[in-house]
Amino acid sequence: MARFFVLDNVSYCYPGSAKTGVCQVNLELEPGTFLAVLGANGSGKSTLARLCCGLLKPTAGRVLVDGYCTANDEELKDIYQRVGIVFQHPDNQFVASTVEREIAFGVENRIMSSRAIRRIVDAEMVRFGLTALRTAQPHSLSGGEKRLLSLADIWALKPKLILVDEPLAMLDPGTRERITQLLRDLRTEGQSMIWFTHGLAEVMAADQVLVMCKGRVVWRGQPATLLTMAEEARAWGITLPPATQVAYELGINSPVVANESELVSVLWK
């Protein structure tokens, strides 16, 4: 039976490099799932993200999207229509000379009337707060604006599965908050999403967490369970919410603390 999204014993080795690839990853996703992939820099999570959308082909195993396999070149078009990736460095994905042309670029490759394209581009510019920058050059935007544009690019295509690689990295606190809210909105709209990060606090709302270390999946479970695993989290190079970390270092084992308010009430009821 064809599942929506399947990683079947997927491995990848970089040709001629000692760089960590990924090793024997298995995964099945139901539509509407929010999966978090946690791991340190160099744990293989960005490689896994590229495997999930067909930008890299596994050296062993299979990646299946609605039954289409990323190993078959003739099926890649069907994969690209279903899976969208937002890269860690937004500059890597920009191709057009203005913000609105950039958002329109992907949509124009779909068979659609120009009025329908216009409507999508306008709606995404509003959603991502980019309307005032419609004629600006993508590469001239601030870091936060680039991040918003890179999300708008992919959103406009309405893929079944969205992959976001460290979407909050390199942002100031205000923009982080804003993007967190946008991603939360998408989640409530039922969007399937895989969020790759090293920080647990970002993905406490995930349905499932998969931890990667040195290219392998070393743990999977609920995000709340990870709050009780400070020693392991440290060894894997993933960051716990600061309140959880402080509680751990103060020797507070129970109750489990997920945020600052809970820590305040444990320390001073």
Binding site: P173, G174, V246, L263, V264, W268
Partner: peptide, 20 residues
């Protein structure tokens, strides 16, 4: 007000506000 305090300083402030 938009700038975050270091976590430990912010925590001490919240504790003080709660009467600690």
């Amino acid at each position: 007000p938009d700038l975050k305090l270091p976590f430990l300083l912010g925590l001490l402030h919240r504790l003080a506000a709660a009467g600690a």
